[in-house]
Design a protein around this nucleic acid. Structure first.
Lengths: 238, 238
DNA sequence: AAGGCAATCTGGTCTATACCAGAATGATGA
DNA sequence: TCATCATTCTGGTATAGACCAGATTGCCTT
């Protein structure tokens, strides 16, 4: 790290205090105003250093609440169809899902295309917020073919969908097509994740098929960018 | 987008001009000082809006050269072992690789672990810079088992490694384990990619095996975060 | 004990300005 | 013709304030 600039020195000092355990994972950093006094500089410069640490996934912010030390990243393996709860639990985290809304709505052109549906078809839309160790890390929208899952909305939707599919509908995820790309979080995702609109995130969209190779649902997962590392192991097909 | 703030209005105005084609892909935006005059604000605020657009992959910067409109993202599919040149060419880009350095060096503990090598083993280290349409998008370090590829350094290393392996050593990539995570670009990658140290990037590290399931090399790919979308389609294994 | 409200804390946005350092350019001299 | 160097352009870093708005807290009332 470049320690010739004020910026770099602040960054390094904070980084050392974090890795050395002065500020453990989850801890809150001193307020920006306090840091700027300590380092004999201004808030603008301190914020520059904090932003840089945030990009690196070392710290994260909660809108108007403060800066916190980021926990280790969750390992996300899209080739194992692990559900969120199972995945988090296996890695020693305490996962939680809260349902924001669940409706049966007319499908939009975008969703029709992704699910390969004709117009005027109904789908369920779920919006859910997921956390590990009480830290919100993921806002996810699911769009589900209504005709395949009658009365879906009557069940407990804060559990994993794959579990629900399996236990109530004899349906399992068998095949998934996914896309992943870095984005600035859009308004709704940002406010749900309690971060500033426009801050960095990872968008993972998936289209899921069942054991009969029917497309059953798709989702848009907005992750806090520091929250995960994507890992996969694949045999190549010649 | 929130248009109640100066920040938001500038962002939106620029975004419209870009999507409407006033500034086509690859074009350079007006200088920050000029923009701040046009929008009757200060450079600080303009930079806020530019940073936000950058996070979204809509524009990118080159250190002390200016801001440019980002081209469409390259689609990267890790499950098809496409090499960089083939992948870019298939999508209509003009790819290029320049070799920065190539040495035979003693392996480090980290590399020994990744390649499953005993200590005191030699590896080749390649550092290469890759561009599409003359825009630098990827800095990559390869670590290659020296014992499997005698005289590797005598060949043309600005081509794709997989082509070289296949034509000269009767070796093909058969299996790959990869990890992908958002990072702030470290010093060397940032300077090679001509971006500011600490700006957002994507690190993809891979461990590759050949047709006999031997680990043959690993690499660390530092991508400009706006440059790609990762896409894969996988059948799940129950 | 519970609810509501006001003070205070936090980061978010913004103005106005200054100087630094690398990149690009064009004139100049060998 | 070609290398060199000063000028000018660019973004990068920094100072020193200011006000806004959501989150938190604790007191005060009922």
């Amino acid at each position: 790290m470049d320690t010739n600039t004020h910026f770099g020195r602040i960054r390094q000092a904070l980084e050392e205090q974090i890795t050395s355990g002065v500020f453990p994972a989850g801890a809150r950093l001193p307020a920006e105003r306090l840091l700027s006094e300590r380092f004999h500089t201004t808030r603008v410069t301190v914020r520059g250093a904090l932003n840089s640490l945030e990009q690196d996934g070392i710290i994260y912010r909660e809108d108007r609440r403060g800066w916190f030390v980021a926990p280790p990243r969750l390992v996300y393996n899209p080739t194992k169809n692990a559900n969120f709860h199972q995945m988090a639990a296996e890695q020693g985290y305490a996962p939680d899902t809260s349902l924001i809304e669940a409706h049966r709505i007319p499908s939009t052109p975008q969703i029709q295309q992704m699910l390969d549906l004709p117009p005027l078809t109904q789908v369920y839309r779920l919006r859910r917020l997921r956390s590990i160790d009480r830290r919100v890390v993921l806002f996810v929208e699911n769009y589900i073919r209504a005709d395949y899952f009658p009365d879906l909305l009557d069940h407990d939707l804060s559990q994993s969908l794959s579990t629900l599919y399996q236990e109530r509908y004899q349906t399992v995820y068998q095949h998934v097509a996914f896309q992943l790309y870095p984005v600035a979080l859009p308004e709704q995702a940002a406010s749900q994740l309690k971060v500033t609109q426009g801050s960095a995130g990872l968008l993972i969209s998936r289209v899921n098929r069942d054991q009969s190779n029917r497309i059953i649902d798709c989702d848009f997962e907005y992750w806090r960018h520091y929250a995960l590392v994507v890992q996969a192991e694949t045999a190549n097909r010649p």
